[in-house]
Amino acid sequence: MADSKPTVKNLPIAGIIFTPGSAKEYNTGSFRSQKPILEAKLCTKCGMCWVYCPDGAVFVNSEGMYEVDLKYCKGCGICVEECARKAIKMVDEEEM
């Protein structure tokens, strides 16, 4: 790891980051102690979980369903509170 640390020579000029959205490589799921579980059959696809997610962790999957990306979800619980159909619940990380 120490070897891969940036040096004066290989740091980009002025520390400019030339890779847009490189934060996607960073896992914010580790912030979480509870995770949201979406019960698909209750979901009306209103999209409010997607709208209100501070972390952009809710996405529309290939089947057109909303899904939480646990790599980024910090477990704030807003989606659970705001889901009109109570289709999302928080469970402890250990629970499956």
Binding site: A14, G15, I16, I17, F18, P20
Partner: peptide
């Protein structure tokens, strides 16, 4: 055209 982040 080439988004970059300045002053991180």
């Amino acid at each position: 055209d080439q988004p970059s982040t300045w002053g991180p």
